[in-house]
Lab assay of single mutants.
Amino acid sequence: MIIKINGKYYKIKKIEKNPNGKYTITTENGKKYEFKNVKIFSEEELK
Rank of each mutant, 00 (worst) to 15 (best):
E34I: 14
Y10C: 02
F35V: 15
K39Y: 15
N37D: 15
N20A: 07
E28W: 15
Y23G: 00
I3V: 12
I15S: 01
F35G: 03
E45K: 01
E28R: 07
N6Y: 11
I3P: 00
E28V: 12
N20P: 04
E45F: 03
N29K: 08
N6K: 13
G7P: 00
E44I: 02
Y33F: 13
K11M: 06
I15W: 06
E43A: 02
F35K: 05
Y23A: 01
E16Q: 08
E43V: 03
G7E: 04
I40C: 06
K36P: 08
Y33M: 07
F35A: 14
N20G: 07
K11N: 06
K31V: 12
K47T: 14
K31P: 03
I2D: 02
I3S: 00
V38F: 05
Y10V: 13
K8R: 13
E28H: 12
M1F: 13
I40D: 06
K4A: 12
L46F: 14
K4D: 07
K32I: 13
K11G: 05
I12G: 00
E16L: 07
N6M: 09
K13E: 08
I40G: 06
S42R: 04
P19R: 10
G30Q: 01
K32G: 02
I15D: 00
T26W: 14
E45S: 06
N29Y: 09
K31Q: 13
I25S: 00
K14H: 12
F35H: 03
I3E: 00
T27P: 00
E28M: 14
K14D: 10
K39D: 15
I3G: 02
I12K: 00
K32L: 09
K36M: 11
I5L: 08
N37M: 08
I3H: 01
K8P: 00
K31R: 11
K39F: 10
K4L: 15
K31E: 12
K32T: 15
S42W: 14
N37I: 11
N6Q: 11
K32Y: 08
N18K: 11
S42V: 06
E16Y: 07
T26V: 11
K31W: 11
E28D: 08
G30R: 01
T27A: 09
I25A: 02
E45C: 12
E16P: 00
N18G: 13
M1K: 10
K22N: 11
Y9S: 07
V38T: 03
K47G: 15
G21Y: 01
Y9Q: 04
K22G: 11
E16I: 10
V38K: 04
K47I: 15
K8T: 11
K13P: 01
N20I: 03
K39A: 13
T27M: 15
S42Y: 15
K14F: 09
Y23V: 04
I12F: 03
K14Q: 14
G30V: 00
N29S: 14
K31H: 12
